[in-house]
Design a protein around this nucleic acid. Structure first.
Lengths: 333, 333
DNA sequence: ATGAAAGCGCTAACAT
DNA sequence: ATGTTAGCGCTTTCAT
């Protein structure tokens, strides 16, 4: 594997000069520059990252933390984040946190070992010790799709979005509304709160035990469990609000298998607006999160944070939008 | 940031001893080991990766190449790959290749710069120059879900799997069968070949122009385009074979919107067996790929390749399985 | 405009 | 069992 010394030797110059060319510095004779560039081309020389990182004491890499169970929403989000980060000249390195069972420690060790420039969290870690450690390391961190008081965050107003989703159901005349959520992450709790608040403003008393079922994860599989549990409790309801589209997909599956028609018998509202939701039968009514913007703002926020060295911006709350499709309709009876 | 010298100084020993402890080598006094371990714990010392990589001349990292448009199938696949790789002690680093537009060059440069131990490709790159370069670099490479003559590969028998899927339709009495595929990747071509061969064995003449529509990508969105095109050509068919579940999902959406019932009017078969396919309405009949095994075998193959320094194993063809669900039924006329 | 030399943090060969 | 030393490939003063 050819290195900078080899290049230098072969053109009869010093490594310093080659380094200047490689890094586009000034003060180098145009002819020599040409010559070196040509040889680099020929030999396919690429500077050794590890050596560069070591002397520069940084990696030009940002870590992206996500759950190993990440869904389509997060997949798209980090695609956008990655693209913007790339435009700023950063590499990206992914750290998968197991949804259940702690791998935060391990994650933290890797974070330190790599001399990252910064971190973006797309997956919420609960342990506050994690954030403490990041603060101690003075590592720039931005959270996306959830918020943390100590770091810049980009997300929608979860509670109000959920409130609107339920408001939609209420406006359609529904009164007996159930919810499937999870308390594993803060968004599930906030969405549940929006749900309860909407019911209250409609004069329906808050009764968590009866109105909400909390499942362990946000996947379609757990949507099935949640819906089954709801059905077990009572069949007397006309609408379901799922904390994520995936939960809604599982819930709809159960409803359908139990012989309910959607939306004729039961209306269903989701949250996230996955691509797939518009292909479902029926097409899912849901809350749209502005994915592209979240990705862009997150990358920008981190870049500013890294460049300035100071925490810049704080809570960036982006607008959500209720998308009314085919899974909800007015209560008839 | 504390380094190995700091640790050494503070316990009054040499960096070598600390290094031995960190790397679990023999020949170090148990008491001293304890003492060092304790200080490491206290200070939160983590060895600098870049320095380690440089002296060791390797990174303990394997690169995973995938498309930036990767779907749920690939997402799950690389989760499994990553897990197994982790068990072997490798880090993973992702390289996203844009589905359209070449970023292979860039990818290759990064590959070189990082002194990777090996590469796993989950996304097929067409340019043969890419494989040439990898060979020149003597970088161990294993491909998953597609095959390349020069490297170990783990995949299903695409053509025979497609053959079986179409056979299923034929057995159900269908004769007028269309296919939606893509020629962007070899699997799309192989699956199309299986489709045509199945038709031929049933005495139906091969007529690619009429029987298959090739779209640019394998997504639901392109499933829509493909299905619309098929409908434009003719409405005289009773079954559709989509080269991927995602294409099938788009196709079903169009069919449904056009007033066709699935499977009463039209049967649909997919390929991949995405998680979501079992939640769809109707549940999708499809070809199952043994995801977990593919992931496991791929990781193992690469590990062996890296450890032995020689290409080990060759084409590993894993068993697929036709999963009959609700989207296909016997032709009634 | 260019080169010599130091040093980033670590490991391993060698010496003891 | 432990310490000394060289060197991995690069960038960056500091001379010139």
């Amino acid at each position: 594997m050819v290195n900078i010394k080899d290049i230098a030797k072969r053109v009869g110059m010093s490594p310093s000069t080659v380094s200047r060319v490689v890094n586009d510095k000034k003060y180098v004779n145009p002819k020599k520059r040409e010559q070196i560039l040509k040889l680099i081309e020929e030999t396919g020389y690429v500077p050794n990252q590890a050596a560069r990182n070591m002397v520069l004491q940084r990696s030009f890499t940002v870590g992206i933390i996500l759950a190993d169970t990440f869904n389509m929403f997060q997949r798209q989000l980090f695609s956008f984040v990655e693209r913007h980060l790339g435009a700023f000249g950063y590499n990206t390195h992914f750290f998968f946190v197991k949804f259940e069972g702690s791998s935060e420690e391990e994650c933290l060790a890797k974070l330190k070992a790599e001399k990252l420039d910064g971190i973006i969290m797309i997956h919420e870690i609960q342990q506050s010790s994690f954030y403490e450690s990041v603060k101690n390391l003075k590592l720039p961190l931005v959270t996306a799709t959830f918020n943390h008081p100590d770091f810049p965050s980009v997300h929608v107003d979860e509670e109000n979005a959920a409130y609107e989703a339920v408001r939609h159901l209420l406006n359609l005349g529904h009164r007996k509304i159930k919810m499937i959520s999870s308390n594993g992450l803060s968004c599930g709790v906030q969405r549940a709160e929006g749900f309860l608040r909407a019911l209250e403003t409609a004069g329906i008393e808050r009764n968590v035990e009866e109105q909400i079922v909390f499942v362990r994860q946000y996947t379609a599989e757990f949507g099935i469990y949640g819906m089954r549990e709801l059905l077990l409790r009572s069949r007397d309801f006309s609408a379901v609000f799922a904390a994520t589209d995936e939960l809604a997909i599982g819930a709809m599956r159960v409803l359908k298998d139990e012989g309910f028609r959607i939306p004729e018998d039961i209306s269903v509202v989701g949250f996230d607006d996955l691509d797939i939701s518009n292909y479902f039968m029926p097409r899912l009514t849901t809350i749209h999160q502005p994915l592209i913007e979240i990705g862009e703002r997150t990358a920008q926020a981190l870049h500013k944070y890294i460049s300035s060295g100071n925490r810049v911006g704080t809570d960036m709350v982006l607008p959500h939008k209720l998308i009314i499709r085919e899974s909800t309709r007015a209560l008839t009876s």
